[in-house]
Design a protein around this nucleic acid. Structure first.
Lengths: 166, 166
DNA sequence: TATTGTTATACTCTATAACTATA
DNA sequence: TATAGTTATAGAGTATAACAATA
């Protein structure tokens, strides 16, 4: 059903029909919309990613979280501070390494993540992709996944590569 | 050919397999990679977008450019300054409105845009989408275009909506 | 009174470096 | 010597307000 590529005007191809341009545009759109949807819950996408990660793998150190989420360890300090201030997570002493802190999700954090998941699913399904059929959504997801995989972007797959140079 | 959605582990669905998440991730990846590819030419994506717009519609005022590109008019001042400093574009007096400046691409700007276009095409075709067949690329482009259209994101389509509140 | 370009200011993000306590 | 967490600082980017010239 797609009426694929229509050539336009005489000269240059319109930027707006290039996948790279569309990806950049949609990426920033998704980020700002999701930020807005999350605001009433009192958290930002950063916190959402972190709670989601810890729910799958509780008790990681700040360094490990930073590598998984591809953010600098300096920024982690503030993020964990904020989660602690909101009662969503807490730092504990690492059992063997006295330099490290492990981070653990608290009950309030799990409860908030549940609601944030609903916000995310509603945004994705009812707003962002509302015009696509179920089959189109599967196709889009698979194509995006392949492009992301080729770019080595997946979370938690190549943690070793993620060393931010200092 | 896509092996569509594979359910994983016991609990939450992995964020990394959601199209909204993939879009946000790929969007920032595209932006940073394209910025890096453009750096040797001495310009940023902003300048590229602006040169591309003016090549299709030379002589717009700074306000009009700002609306088309969805950036604030205050920022336009600096961008045009930079393009002028590099000899890529220049301000001229608006023929009838003495408050306004029109912006015009100079020969060096057109020449640089040609090279930037090549950089863009090479990045998109040989790097970003290298793993996708021609048919997959068309499918992806069409799906992205439909999602972007639904979000009213196209450049230059609804300029009237773009009023940044002050 | 509204608009164009401009400047100034503040606020957020990010990147870098350096410090401490451990290993 | 290297690493985990922390703190401080500087730069880029963005948002807001205000101003002069003109409509």
């Amino acid at each position: 059903m797609p009426r694929a590529d229509q050539e336009d005007d005489g000269g240059r191809a319109l930027l707006a029909s290039h996948p790279a341009f569309l990806l950049a545009q949609l990426g920033s759109h998704v980020k700002s919309r999701f930020t807005a949807h999350l605001a009433p819950l009192g958290i930002a996408p950063r916190h959402f990613d972190m709670l989601a990660l810890l729910t799958d793998a509780d008790g990681l150190t700040q360094q490990q979280i930073a590598r998984e989420l591809n953010i600098h360890r300096n920024v982690m300090v503030g993020l964990v501070d904020e989660l602690e201030a909101k009662g969503l997570a807490e730092r504990r002493r690492h059992p063997t390494d006295r330099r490290a802190h492990t981070v653990h999700v608290l009950p309030r954090g799990r409860e908030l993540l549940r609601r944030a998941d609903q916000v995310f699913d509603a945004f994705e399904g009812d707003e962002l992709l509302a015009t696509l059929s179920a089959a189109d959504r599967r196709t889009l997801t698979e194509l995006l996944r392949r492009v992301a995989a080729a770019a080595e972007l997946q979370r938690g797959v190549h943690p070793a590569f993620r060393g931010s140079p200092e």
